[in-house]
């Protein structure tokens, strides 16, 4: 029974991955919108884009990790 609850928790934690996906999409979409308005400034900001994506994605990876821990380590 405990294992079953852990699996449910793992599934719930996996929702966080989807939330991170929304975040990453937001970052990339807003970058694209800005880049289309001012294409000359876009090239200089790609590093910022990747840092932003990395930070947004890290949290999704955390939830993925929690899910993995619940699946395999509990």
């Amino acid at each position: 029974m405990e294992g079953d609850l852990a699996h449910i928790g793992a599934g719930l934690a996996a929702i966080g991955s989807g939330a991170a996906a929304i975040g990453v999409g937001n970052v990339a979409g807003n970058f694209l919108a800005g880049a289309l308005r001012n294409p000359s400034a876009a090239a200089s900001q790609t590093a910022t884009l990747f840092i932003g994506i990395a930070f947004a994605e890290a949290l999704g990876i955390f939830s993925f990790l929690v899910s993995l821990l619940l699946m395999f380590a509990v």
């Binding site: 990395a54 930070f55 994605e57 890290a58 990876i61 955390f62 993925f64 990790l65 993995l68």
Partner: peptide
Amino acid sequence: VSHSIRLAGNVMAGHA
């Protein structure tokens, strides 16, 4: 923490 887990997590997630 985030620095290390981001890399390992991404790679592990993809392979898994």
